[in-house]
């Protein structure tokens, strides 16, 4: 764990007990997040990216989910905290934004009341001060005529405005860490870019650390300093965004980038990854991408490959690339 990291996740695993069996949603995720860093977690549905985020903030239902490994935030281990301590950290030092803004808001209270209430609860400010700060926050997230919007109910706002208001709510207690779970996925493309730019600007100004979960390569590219590509509950490649995008070092990342149609030429078939993601109830003790990988060999099926560094901060969970026997 480096000196300036504010979040340290070590061998995090999440299992869900269901009627059909045990779902291995997250299988050993480790990373450090530095102060002011933006980590993008890129993965498809079922890769465990959202579950990882929820495990960090302790949002998974304890009766179904068993969590292993350690999550240290600000020098304290999250899983050893009581519910009260966890609640104090959530909202104040770690905040989360979602794909669907309506889940963050109570439909029967105005946006201003809800932001002010959070400020009063966590900071003990007076109502009047809290309202003033709520207005400042709405201005910060570039909501026009912020003062008037304080009195608006969530459903009276358009999708993009709701998303901005949710960001304002998340920022209300100056969190050190912002967890973003696909916050732009439900938005139209012209609004999406506005929200991405807003988040980037706020992150720079406030010096927050951000973990941004997305399935969209373009969105991840726009927002991330560092990228982690997730597959079957594991990070399969991590590194600076520039390196991962320009020089993918895991066959899955490579396949994902070449199956996004931007790289394809019109009138030619796409370079698609065959097959489908593995069944999380029956993960093999092997490289989980091997059944779909065109470079797979016998050795890939003998145990889960380690996340091995290629350069100082670019790592891959591919045996052949890791041993320098494969150039992508």
């Amino acid at each position: 764990m480096s000196q300036d990291s504010i979040l340290s996740v070590d061998n995090l695993s999440v299992r869900f007990r269901t009627h059909e069996g045990i779902v291995h949603a997250v299988n050993g995720v480790s990373f450090d997040l530095a102060q002011g860093e933006v980590l993008g977690i890129l993965g498809e549905s079922g890769s465990g990216k959202s579950v990882t985020l929820r495990a960090i903030i302790g949002l998974l239902p304890r009766e179904y989910a068993s969590i292993g490994g350690r999550v240290r935030f600000g020098g304290r281990e999250i899983q050893h905290l009581s519910n009260e301590e966890l609640n104090a950290i959530r909202g104040a030092r770690i905040a989360m934004i979602f794909q669907e803004p309506m889940v963050a808001f109570d439909p029967v209270f105005t946006v201003g009341d809800q932001i002010a209430e959070t400020i009063v609860r966590h900071d003990g400010a007076s109502w009047r001060d809290a309202m003033r700060r709520a207005r400042d926050l709405l201005e910060l997230v570039q909501i026009p005529s912020a003062k008037r919007r304080l009195a608006a109910y969530p459903h009276e706002m358009s999708g993009g405005m709701q998303q901005r208001a949710m960001i304002a709510l998340a920022l209300s207690c100056n969190p050190q860490l912002l967890l973003a779970d696909e916050p732009t996925t439900a938005l139209d493309v012209t609004v999406q870019i506005q929200i991405i730019l807003l988040l980037r600007e706020l992150q720079r100004e406030l010096g927050m650390s951000v973990i941004f979960v997305t399935h969209d390569v373009g969105v991840a590219t726009e927002i991330s300093d560092r990228l982690a590509v997730m597959y079957a509950g594991r990070f399969v490649e991590t590194g600076p965004a520039v390196d991962v995008i320009e020089q993918p070092r895991h066959p899955y990342t490579d396949g994902l980038l070449s199956s996004t149609v931007l790289s394809a030429r019109q009138g030619h078939r796409l370079n698609a990854i065959p097959g489908a993601p593995p069944d999380l109830m029956a993960l093999p003790d092997a490289c989980s991408f091997a059944p779909r990988c065109r470079y797979a060999e016998e050795q890939c099926l003998s145990g889960v490959p380690a996340l091995s560094p290629i350069t100082r901060d670019h790592a891959t969970r591919c045996l052949r690339v890791g041993e320098g026997r494969l150039e992508l």
Binding site: P274, G275, A276, P278, D279, A282, L283, P284
Partner: peptide
Amino acid sequence: SKTDNTVIVVD
């Protein structure tokens, strides 16, 4: 002939 059913099974 492209199927996307790579399911790992016992039997």
